[in-house]
Amino acid sequence: MLMEILVSLLILVGGAFALLGSVGLARLPDFFMRLHGPTKATTLGVGSVVLAALVHGGLGEEGGGLRELAITLFLFITAPVTAHLLSKAALAERRRQERTQKQS
């Protein structure tokens, strides 16, 4: 019973944060501002959903449990790398647009 409440709470919090990151992505006016939503909120949201799966799976299945943690760890390592590469790409794209504007 207690576990069920914990799992429910975790998936609700996770879903809310995943939605929040996407709202930020859709709503904010500038690319670099949009970058903030998905890198933080969505990563934590999905992390907490995966954690819920861990708590839930740890009850019924044998052996299961730690495997879900691998996904969370992977997401937390890759999210900053993705954000960093995207901002570098956006800066390059912006420089290129400025150059073509000057030429025309």
Binding site: R34, P38, V46, V49, E68, L86
Partner: peptide, 19 residues
Amino acid sequence: PDRILALDTLGINTIALVM
């Protein structure tokens, strides 16, 4: 870059949906 970011976020949300 906006589209790539959207695609990446779509992928991360897919993980949540699958879980």
